[in-house]
Design a protein around this nucleic acid. Sequence first.
DNA 1: AAACGACTCCCGTGAACGCGGGATTTACAG
DNA 2: CTGTAAATCCCGCGTTCACGGGAGTCGTTT
Lengths: 216, 216
Amino acid sequence: MSVRAPVTNVWLIEDNSAFREALARVIRDSSSLDCSRTFSSCEEALQALHTTTPPEVILLDVGLPGMSGIEGIQHIKTAAPATQIIMLTMFDDHDKVFKSICAGASGYLLKTAAPGKITDAIQEVLAGGAPMNSRVARSVLDMFAKLAAPHADYGLTGREKMVLELMVRGLIKKEIAEQLSLSYHTIDTHLRNIYQKLHVHTRTGAVAKALKERLF
Amino acid sequence: MSVRAPVTNVWLIEDNSAFREALARVIRDSSSLDCSRTFSSCEEALQALHTTTPPEVILLDVGLPGMSGIEGIQHIKTAAPATQIIMLTMFDDHDKVFKSICAGASGYLLKTAAPGKITDAIQEVLAGGAPMNSRVARSVLDMFAKLAAPHADYGLTGREKMVLELMVRGLIKKEIAEQLSLSYHTIDTHLRNIYQKLHVHTRTGAVAKALKERLF
DNA sequence: AAACGACTCCCGTGAACGCGGGATTTACAG
DNA sequence: CTGTAAATCCCGCGTTCACGGGAGTCGTTT
């Protein structure tokens, strides 16, 4: 068993010095957390990452001058993959939330949250959670639902879906015929029917439509 | 201004009668909520939806006998699109979370949560939020990051990406040439280079790869 | 029994494609 | 200054495609 206290290192990247110092103090006041370093820009923090042991958690402002927080995520994740990143923001801007998440952020908090909420959030991240404002969570859910939802149906038959799938995999007609133990002419006919149903007239168009709308 | 109290109707679908009744009581105890009806299966609830005014919120067990909660979401959303659905579950099973969200659930709670948390969650949904256990939230974030992350780079040049995009839109070489005010031969060369870089040898293959891996 | 849809197979033609070879210009780095 | 890489342009050949036509076999529905 380890003898040293289980203190978690947290870095803070935030350009507003008043907010930065206030938040750093709150974190240091927590017995299990230590805000070992603070920065006013991503660039500085990135440089420090190359010469220092990375912290467990970084609190990162979304709207930073110079390199934005969102760009910062990618660079931080490259330099320190194990470090968890919690984004701080003034507003729950849909687009920024989306981009942050895609870049690999582990949490998304509003700066207007109570200081205690922020230390709670750090603990939550360490426990494998993803703290976020519930409106933010809703945005994420809605995006997901939209992403997977439509699934239009053009009345493709089973055989046609099969052929379409093989087409997506890049097989030419002859190869599809072999794969399904059919004649070249049969595949040709299937393609015509598929084109008609999808309102396209090239295999490229059919494949694009199939992938975009998750057919077959 | 309305005179009647702003009481929100909540339905509860849960097969375990003990848990169902206990939770119903908690909801009824809340001044602003009313658990007007409870069901032990999706089928019963669905039938009720056709003869009764739908509630604002439905609490839905994921693991139901007969029609599962996940299937239930789709049917409920069809019968009552405005009704918000909060899923209840014993475990935070990745796959079930994913499927529920895709089907349109607005929240995802663990049954082990304190009763007060559940009424809080209902209020949160009504306020446009998406209550969820923070581990669940993490699953969702991870899925998102994985979905959008890879973004492999095959070293395509700007011009090649441009050409690839037009190819995805279904244009033939001649049309791409016109669109970019270039010679047919130039496009031909670009295509060869793209094929080489993507390790394919047909436009279909290139388009499939471009769409799957979000190139350009 | 007739009708329909899904699935199968065949022929021929002109257009588009993939790829083998070339080439030049511009721009930037060693 | 001399590579190198991107972007542009050209020719010809054999393959593959899209589509015009055609037909036959099942199985279900009416």
